[in-house]
Amino acid sequence: MTTILVTGGTGTLGSLVTARLRAAGHEVRVLSRHAQPYAVDLRQGTGLDAALAGADAVVHCATTPRGGDDTAAGHLIEAAKRAGVPHLVYISIVGVDRLPLGYYKVKRKVEGMIEDSGLGWTVLRTTQFHDLVLTILQTSAKLPVMLLPAGVRVQPIDTAEVADRLAELVAGPPAGRVPDMGGPEVRTLPELAGAFLHATGRRRPVVPVRLAGMAYAGFRRGLHLTPDRAVGKGAFEDFLVTRAGRPGR
């Protein structure tokens, strides 16, 4: 039986990866700050040596846009090297090497740290999850008018499909940078807002707003998209149905 660690294993993606690995018969250790018996603070590096002892692989899903992912990854990599872990799988984002966004720059830095670690590694980049798009739309819909970035398209993918792919990758040998995963369609934000409003029974005017900055310009150019790798199956409307048809009313 293979022992696999999942960092961020209680999160949106990590919990799905954990469920799939356990269903496949693997022993899974869920790492988060509050999960027992492996309560690990990645930013401080506490608890890692015990959690990694005897592990065959790690799926690194833990992340935060508030910063510190590189520090956390550094602690994880060093502990994995001490434990002799042969395979580290990392989930990243399409466009981290092209978009001048702080969070993306850190994600790309972590990719480089893993590539240079001396560990066996696999990196998968995906487009934005349906969950993220839903959160953006729910936040915008709290106002009488939905204000959305003008000219921005997205290619959202089902988190469950990403979890399937990560579970497959970690069960295999280190594969380096594997092909990207993109959602099935490139859609405009107003299109997705229309689907959201219909599913939730709301009415809101949708107003595109032009923003400033190089990151916004990159999103307008579609640097976060991978239309040639539109391998996802579940459309955003399908995802809304799974959320009882009326998410976040």
Rank of each mutant, 00 (worst) to 15 (best):
V209H: 00
V94Q: 03
W121Y: 15
E161Q: 12
L5E: 10
M1N: 12
D164T: 15
V154K: 03
Y104I: 05
G25S: 00
S15Q: 15
P65G: 07
D97Q: 13
I114M: 09
L148C: 07
V154R: 07
R22P: 08
I4V: 15
V154G: 00
G54V: 08
A57D: 03
F236K: 04
V186F: 06
E27W: 06
G45M: 10
E185D: 14
T242N: 11
F196N: 09
A235R: 15
A80G: 09
V207L: 15
V89T: 06
A50S: 14
F219C: 03
I77Q: 05
R204N: 06
R33V: 10
L147P: 04
E161P: 04
P144E: 07
E161M: 10
F219H: 10
L76W: 05
R204F: 05
L13D: 07
V40N: 03
D238K: 07
S140V: 15
G84K: 08
K105V: 12
G232D: 01
D69M: 15
K105T: 13
A193S: 00
V207F: 15
V152L: 00
A199D: 10
E115K: 14
V209R: 05
D116N: 15
T127H: 02
G118E: 01
R210C: 11
A217R: 13
G11Q: 01
L124N: 03
L225F: 00
G68P: 04
G182R: 03
T71S: 11
I93R: 14
K142H: 12
T242K: 14
A39W: 02
P156F: 07
A19D: 08
P149A: 01
D180I: 12
V207I: 15
M181Q: 12
A193C: 01
A230C: 09
I114N: 03
H224Q: 13
A19L: 04
L13K: 09
G182L: 06
P190K: 06
C61G: 02
A50Q: 12
V152C: 05
D70T: 13
G234N: 11
A39R: 10
E78G: 04
P205R: 02
A235H: 14
A51E: 00
V209C: 00
V152W: 04
L166T: 07
D70K: 11
K107E: 01
D56K: 09
A171T: 13
Y103L: 10
G183L: 05
L137R: 01
G84N: 10
D41P: 08
L197P: 03
G11Y: 01
G95R: 05
L192D: 00
L5N: 09
Y216E: 02
Q36D: 11
L13G: 10
T139M: 13
S140K: 10
M146Y: 09
K109Q: 15
L169M: 04
R210S: 12
H26M: 14
G9M: 04
A212V: 12
L88F: 15
G54W: 08
G102L: 13
A212S: 14
E191Q: 15
H130G: 00
P156R: 05
H87Y: 03
A160W: 02
D69I: 12
K107A: 09
A62K: 01
R246G: 11
L169C: 05
M181Y: 10
G120Y: 06
K233L: 11
R229Q: 14
D97K: 09
G172S: 04
L148W: 08
L148Q: 08
H26T: 15
A79L: 04
W121G: 02
T226D: 11
V40K: 00
S117Q: 10
